[in-house]
Structure formats: structure tokens, C-alpha cells
Design a protein around this nucleic acid. Sequence first.
DNA 1: GCCGTTTTCGGCCCGACTGTTTTCAGTCG
Length: 625
Amino acid sequence: MIFAHAWCSRSTRAKPFAANRARPRALPRSCSPCSHHAVDTLRRMGTNTEIAAAFEELAVLSELLGANVFKVNAFRRAARAVESLTGEACSMESAALKAIDGIGASTAAKIFEFAKTGAMSELDELRAQIPAGLKEVLGIQGIGPKTARALWIDAGVVDLSSLSAAIESGAVAKLPRMGAKTIENMKEAIAFAQTAVGRMRIGDAMPVANALVARLGALSCVQRIAYAGSLRRGKETIGDLDILACSEESGPLMEAFCTMPEVARVLVQGLTKSSVQTKHGLQIDLRVVPLEKFGAAWQYFTGGKEHNVRLRERAIAQGFRLNEYGLFAADASGKVADGALPVASREESDIYHALGLEWMPPTMREDRGELDAFVLGAAHTPIVEQHDIRAELHCHTTASDGALSIDELVSEAQRRGFHTIAITDHSKSQFQANGLDETRLLTHIAAIHAARARFPRMQIWAGSEVDVLSDGSLDYSDDLLRQLDWVVASPHAALKQEPRVATDRLLKAIRHPLVHVLGHPTGRIVNGRPGLEPVMSELYAAARECHTALEINSHHMRLDLRDTHVRGAVAAGCMVAINCDVHGLSDYDELGYGILTAQRGWLPKASCINTFDAAALDAWRRVKR
DNA sequence: GCCGTTTTCGGCCCGACTGTTTTCAGTCG
Ligand SMILES: Nc1nc2c(ncn2[C@H]2C[C@H](O)[C@@H](COP(=O)(O)OP(=O)(O)OP(=O)(O)O)O2)c(=O)[nH]1
Ligand SMILES: [Mg+2]
Ligand SMILES: [Mg+2]
Ligand SMILES: [Zn+2]
């Protein structure tokens, strides 16, 4: 798999990821503290996120007032543009802001106002006009901005409870286009909203999707089937399951789908598209197309939405029209002739190639510069793939909280084609995980080294996952750490620290001369706890400078670094380790999620230490020994 | 509100399904 450097060099226009591009630098002899972050230190954290949220709210509220849909869309694009900046929007010049795609004079002025005052007057005015509770009304399936506005203006609805009251009182039935069925659907949707689950972790969704694909694929009328949507793009959480099938008998297929035993509610049922909600609150969308249109449909249904919109814009600019049935030639007025055959439709690659692009991995289809990076003939750098991984550098045995012996861990690594494994049990402060004290660790090191004789083809390292204590010091003395072949340093406790404290804590670990990898850097749990919120740009700079890799912990509960952090680390020139944090045999299978996350962060194979050959990895290790 | 290798005005991705409608608006993917 390949990708181009283009997001930072192709266009004369400033692109979001151009902001903090790191220049190559020589590795310093010692790991000295950086001093260039004084300004960052003083600034409030998370400002880009806040600004993006403000523009998104501007979109929602102005839409409720019936604003022009293209203007509403422009607010949404501005929100995305700010969100994906690597630098702080508040510290950018107006000209630099306006050079970013989706940000014009008006948006730049609002950002400037936010930087100065911490607020946007236009947004505040909208907030004053519109009941805050209308947002939860908008969250009901089937209620969009037009309906919400009518409910508010004409039926006095201001939140969910007043909506229920207005339905009971008959006020809602008086609105135009409000028949019995619409109201019944609304009641069901309100009831369902109480029980509905939020976004599912990818590791929970994947087995469900695979089972469903297998089950539907076994039907004789199904010719080809695959999952699509955010699951195929490898997002850490999944809003629903999107399944694409090819069939010539879509009626029976849709009927089979909508009458599956786990279906609680059929949202829509048609011949090309159906949606159901399961008893567990999971939504599943099924689209059915003829076999020869599979590629176009898979491209559409995989998304993401913003990627699709960009791709369709590109098609128009090149004299085509693109939809889920194919790429079609258009005439001068942009029209497609009736009954015209598609220029491309069978496979995804046909679509991309016809548009002058290479096929690109779904993980990168997020409208984050990929259409520039994958122009046919562009200079390419290979992106990491699962078969590139040749080392597991973070795993636990029964000595601490793992389920496997040293030999079981090593033989499984060997079975998977790895050449290197680092055994890294917990350190003494992790007493709840049976962390090893100094005496036990020394015994353990000897036991790990003794395994080398039994696995002569494996490079086996005695390591530790040493706890990064709350002040950034490590849980073992330097003397002890020096006796280890490999050191992963990870934060486990005090994960609610202030960003500045957390940053300094992690910087200390990164700069430690005996640390190879910063493990699960934020300690977040997906759909669980937010974890630390350090100033990531400072971590990247220090990691690069001090020859410390940042870990992507592949476990689907962690995925830490997350995708956006990986992208930042790559742009800053860091090395990344993709580890499974193995506690049991099945944890090796978590690697797939780590790879998806790495690809979402555009991680080149060459920036991932787990892809090195055995000698190169050992040489990399020895820089810190 | 944003934007421009045919444009500084006039477009802006595009289609399926539903309900309530005599021709389509609204919502969603
Ligand atoms: N062209 C186009 N495609 C869309 C639009 N909305 C959705 N799609 C496509 C791309 C999406 O990835 C795909 C599935 O829609 P979903 O709403 O399920 O989104 P997605 O799976 O990306 O995210 P999710 O985790 O479900 O929230 O359908 C749209 O407005 N235009
Ligand atoms: Mg989806
Ligand atoms: Mg969907
Ligand atoms: Zn661990």
C-alpha cells in the first residue's frame, strides 16, 4: 500500500496539515529539554476543538432558523477545517487562515473574535433565540431541521418532554404534513432514543458485522457481500453497520434482512436500501445493487461522506457525474444521457483510476488530503500494512497479569512470522496487576534470556512496561532499567491530571535515556475514560529528538495513540511502535485494529519500528543502551 | 459562506424511501 507526501508539498495553497510540518533534524547527543514551547504553555488547551464545535453549532442553529442550506454547509466545512488543523487556529494570521480550504473572510473573522474574547457574537445571538432543548428534539430519528422548527414555532415544543406533551395534546397533529403514521413513527423513535446505545467500539462491531456478512452471504440470492461505512474505514467507534450486497432478487433478500430474529424495528424497507434497528439498539443498513455496479456502490457506501462529496466534485470538474451506480460522462451542461452506460462501476479501482487517482485504502478516505496524495503518478511512500509487522514489543506473562508463559508468548509470536518479541511485564507500583518488584524482575530477566536457547530463531528481549508515575519519574531505578533489553514506559494512574502537568509528566518519560517506547500515551479507554490530554505537539517534538517511539496500543479498548495523534506524530517525524499489549493468545488478533488506526494516521512503513528486520530493530534498540 | 487551469456570479454531491401529497418535501445514507 502506498501514499504520497503530497499533503505537505503539492499545493501552493496552505493545507491543514502543512502548518506544523517538521523539518529533518539531526539526532542530538543528549536528550535535552526543549524550550520552544513557552507560548503553547500559556495558551488554553483544546481551542481548535472548541472553535470547531462553535461552527458546528452555528450550522445546527442557523439551519433551525431556515438559513440557506449552502451557508449551513459552509459552517460545517469550516468546522471540519478547523478540527483537522495541526496548529492552533487562534494563533494563525488571518491570511493563513483564509488560505485554508473552507475558511473565508467571515470564518477567519469569527476565529479572530473567538481568540480575542473566547466567544462568537453571532453564535451567542442564535443561542439566545433558540431553546437549547431543541437539539435533543433534532436527535430523534426522522426529525430534521424543518420538522423541529415547525414543532417549535407552531406547537411550542422546546425539548423532548414538551414534544411528548404536544403529541398527547394533539398540537402536533395540527401541523401540516403530520398524519397518523408520522406521529406514530415519532412516538416509536422517542421511545427508542431512550434505550439506544451510542457508538460502538470497533472491536465489538467487527465480529457482529462478520457474522452478519457470513449469514446473509450464505443466502443463495446473494452474489457478493461486504461491510462498508466507518467499520471498513477502521474508525475507533462505529455508528451503525453498513452492509453492501449484490443480488438479482433484492425483494426476497430485503425481506429476509428485515425479518431477522434480532430486528426490533424496520426503519425503511425498499428494493435497493433497507434499515433496521436491532433489539440491542444497533442500526444496520443494507444496500443491494447489481453485481456489475459493486465497485461504485462500495465506494459510495464506504465513504466517508466528505470524501464522497470531494470525489463527486472532482468528477464534475472532469466532465463526469459520480453516484453509487457508476461514473458517467456528462455533457456540457452537466447532464448524463438517459440510459448511458457508466465509464466505470465494477470495481472501486475502476472509479478512482478513471478520475486520475490511485485506489486508496478506505482508512484514508476522510477528506484529509487523500485526493491530492493519490493522484496517479505522484511520488509515493509505502504505508504500513499488517503483513509488514514482524515484532511484538509489549506483552505480559503470568509473572504479572498475563495468561501466558514466556514460552507460550514466544511460540505464538514465532507462529505469526515475527522475528522479535519483547516481554514487558508490569512494574512494582502496578500491584493490582501483580507488578514485579526488583527481586522478581531480576529473576524474570534470567528466565526470559533462558528462553533464547529454546527459540534460536527468535530475538527475545527482557523488558518491562515500567509505570510512568504521576510526576513523570519511572517505577524502577536507572540501574535496574539498564539491565533490561527493552523498556516501554506507560502511564496507568493519575489519568485526570491537568494538561500542563500531564504534558510535563510524559515529556519526562520520553526524554528518559533508557526508555524505548512511550506506551499507550494518554491512557484513554474508548467509550470509557478520556485519559490524559497532553499538548501532543510537545510530545512529538521530544520523541523525535530523544529517539523514543510512540506506541499505538492496538487493543480496541485503547487505540492509543488514536488516529489523529498518529497523523500528528507522522507529520512531526516521529517513530511509532504498533503493539498488542498481549495478555492472552487472542490479543495478538488486536493487531488489525492497530494497523487500521496507523493507516488512518498515514503511518509510513518506514516510520514503524515493528516493520524493521531483526538486525535493524536491534540497532535501533541499542541507540539507547 | 466559499470558491474559481473555461467563472468574482452563480453554482454548491446525489439518490432512496416515506408519508401525505395530486406532484413532492423532508430526512437520511
Ligand atoms: N455521497 C454521499 N454519501 C453519503 C452521504 N451520507 C452518507 N454517505 C455514505 C458515506 C458513508 O460512509 C456511508 C454510510 O453512512 P453512515 O451514515 O453510516 O456513515 P459512516 O458509516 O461513515 O459513519 P457512522 O459511524 O455510521 O456514523 O454512506 C451523503 O450525504 N452523500
Ligand atoms: Mg455507518
Ligand atoms: Mg449507515
Ligand atoms: Zn501492557
